[in-house]
Each structure stands twice: as C-alpha cells, then as structure tokens.
Design a binder for these strands. Sequence first.
DNA 1: ATGGTAGTCCGACTA
Length: 264
Amino acid sequence: MRLATWNVNSVRARLDRVLAWVERSDVDVVALQETKCKDEQFPEQAFAEIGYQVAHHGLSQWNGVALLSRVGLDDVSTAFSPDVPAFGDPAVVEARALGATCGGVRVWSLYVPNGRALGDPHYDYKLQWLDRLRAAGTQWLGEDPARQVALVGDFNIAPTDEDVWDPAVFASSTHVSAPERAAFQALVDAGFTDVVRPHAPGPGVFTYWDYTQLRFPKRQGMRIDFVLGSPALAARVTGATIDRQERKGKGASDHAPVIVELAD
DNA sequence: ATGGTAGTCCGACTA
C-alpha cells in the first residue's frame, strides 16, 4: 500500500496538477492539507472519476483537510479529541484534522497551526493543539499498542537544525523553537516515529520552500511535512520519497508530496 | 529601495 501526504495550498487553484499527480503516483491513500475550501466547494466528483473515495472537512477559505482512498474510507472523524482547542473571536475549532480507516490503517490528515510568531496567541494555540494530539495518540496506543496509526501532514515544525536551510535565519522564528521541538518530540515519545527520514536522509532534504526569494531554485527549504507511524505501522514501511519534482513549474504548491510504501 | 509570492474574496488576511 502507498500512502501520501501533501499540503496542496488550495485544491481548487491547482486541481489539474493535483489530479495528475494522484493519477501518476499510484497512491492508495492521500492526505491533503490546506484545501482552502468549504465541503460544498471541494471537487469530489473529479477524484471519484479517477477512482478515489473522498472525505473532506472545510469550514471556510482557510485550512481544510481531506482524505482520498481507493482501499476504503471508514469511520470518518473530524476531531482527534473532544477538547481540540478553538481559536479566534468568536473561537472556533478550525478544520485542521480528519481521520479515517483506510485499508486497515487509521490515517489522520493534520494541518498543525502555524504559530505566526513567538508570543503570538496563535503560538500558544499551536502548542496546545499539539499537546491534545499527543494525549489522543497516547490514549490510542494505550488501548491497543498494535494499532496501525499514521499521523500525517503539515506539522509546521522543523524538528532539528538540519531541517531548515539556515538555522541562523530562523533563530527567533516559529517552527524551530524549543517548545515546538519538544511538542514534536513528545509525539515521538508517545510512539509515533518519523518513518520517512531513514529513507530520505539529509542534509538539504526538505518538503517546503517559500514562494518568495527564489527559495526553491536555491534549495532553501524546510522539512515540516511528516508521516509519523505507530510501532505496527512503522514496521511495515519499506520505503519513502519526497517528490521534489512536483514543487517545480508553474502552479506548484509550496509543499512537495511525501509518499510512504507499506509492505502488505 | 522595508522590497520578494501566492492563495482566499475584493482590501486584508494568511502563510
């Protein structure tokens, strides 16, 4: 089974590219983030026509997460916890998580809050959100350690200095701060390991490149998109790739797709 | 030179 995650930065603005990528990549399950649309705006029919079941969760033009599957899509849930933190005024639980069971794997498509700036309310929200995710993950594996769970998506954290093109540039930025890295490590300590890194070692291996400043051609990116697998899932991983090619050309997302190959 | 890109719905917000 092939499982992918991709922050598409609007599914409608680049539907042709997304459809073409899904078709040629021979993926069984795809988690999308930043679809940037409401449920009724999601182009479900286009994905159905190429053989995928669709689940989408979007409340506005912001955020939005989806799952595409050709190996079943059951027990869809839009919240990993009954107390996912809300944000804004009025405070709302944003569309940042969507879970479903696909081919025996519990897959969560996750779009972790950006954080915006150290000390910003959005930063505290990000840390809280990640702690609730850790608590949920701990509970799932506590109930059944053999469960196959994949926490995938845009985590908006670069876990080590090797995961940014120049640590000095990010010295007082979000994504690299000690509390954010601790929140990521807490997920790892809860039993969810980065299954891609062993197959895509650094340095200079990234999943995101800012649109500005010619960051992509200069190879100045960040590694912030992950597939974190429970022990039973991690044991099945036979390979992984970051599709840097898809970041090229007109109309690309600023994130590359990440693909994991699982043994049957 | 406070610049540079791209998405949403239409001046501003988000990343």
